[in-house]
């Protein structure tokens, strides 16, 4: 829009240009500082993870490791903290299972709510929406007792089953399905296609971005879950990463094994960051869409 401006004289235009450049400099300067603040924790995590036990306790702290070492990572993968790998495996497994079931269940339910006509459809849907106002803290206690009574404590199904149906995702996908014009449906019907074929051949391809979004959000969700896994899986073998991290290190926070802890947090953080690097556009668009759409 800046180019659309007209100036009375060249001098005025030059002056404007000068002010613009100075302003631009400060804008970049400020943004760079903010970006640095954003990156410091990442840098400090990496830097500390390459330090030796002596260097980590050096006063004053060193900003660049003097003698970078991989020993901390070797310890994460082979030492007493090697169980972290199992936690990562658990998390990946639970994340994938949850996501697969969640996507299938969500697609079916939102198809029913958006396309099918049946008695009580809107009432059921309204009932589902009202539960979204209730914070998860209201449910976690009873869910724990339910899982305990089912005898599912320390099992994978305790980590997966309660999360495979989400009102939010059903709503999200239903909104998406609703935008598909009715004419497509009638055309498919006239051609003698069944509802399920229509779902498979028409609705799913159109709603693909939303389904990718759901997949990504569900994966991030499992990766970050803390209290639920911690409550239903107490056994050392069954933990997920977040709880596992706390379990291994909670008594050492800010203590003398910072280099070990940072190597472990790096290992735990990398999968999400790598996934982000691969699916940048999808993830950012997905998060923005799920936030604003509705």
């Amino acid at each position: 829009m800046e180019k659309e401006l007209y100036f009375a004289s060249d001098e005025q235009a030059k002056k404007y240009e000068r002010i613009r450049k100075v302003r631009l400099f400060f804008v970049y300067f400020f943004l760079t500082i903010c970006a640095l603040f954003t990156l410091i924790p990442f840098y400090w995590m990496l830097a500390t993870s390459f330090k030796t036990a002596e260097e980590v306790q050096r006063i004053p702290a060193t900003f660049i490791p003097l003698q970078p070492t991989f020993q901390n990572y070797i310890n994460v993968f082979s030492g007493e903290n090697a169980i972290l790998l199992r936690y990562i495996g658990n998390t990946v497994l639970v994340g994938i299972l949850t996501t697969i079931f969640e996507v299938i269940i969500t697609i079916l339910a939102s198809f029913a709510f958006s396309r099918l006509e049946f008695k009580g459809r809107d009432v059921i849907f309204a009932l589902l929406l009202t539960t979204m106002m209730v914070p998860g803290e209201m449910m976690i206690m009873t869910n724990f007792t339910t899982i305990a009574r089912l005898g599912w404590l320390d099992t994978y199904q305790a980590l997966v089953i309660p999360f495979v149906a989400s009102v939010f995702y059903i709503f999200f996908l239903r909104q998406n399905f609703k935008q598909i014009p009715d004419e497509l449906y009638y055309a498919a019907k006239v051609d003698g296609n069944s509802d399920f074929k229509y779902l498979w051949k028409v609705m799913l391809p159109i709603a693909r971005p939303s389904i990718i979004t759901i997949t990504i959000l569900a994966m991030i969700g499992s990766w970050n879950a803390y209290l639920w896994p911690r409550s239903v899986c107490v056994e050392a073998d069954m933990k997920l990463v977040t709880d596992g991290l706390m379990y291994l290190f909670q008594n050492e926070v800010g203590g003398t094994s910072d280099h070990q802890i940072m190597a472990a947090t790096t290992v735990v953080s990398l999968p999400l960051l790598i996934a982000f690097a691969c699916f940048k556009k999808h993830i950012m668009r997905g998060v923005a869409r799920s936030g604003i759409k509705g």
Binding site: P41, T242, L245, T265, S269, L272, A275
Partner: peptide, 10 residues
């Protein structure tokens, strides 16, 4: 895209 607990530790 970071883990809340992990970066709390950081």
């Amino acid at each position: 895209v970071t883990n809340g607990i992990a970066f709390g530790l950081v």
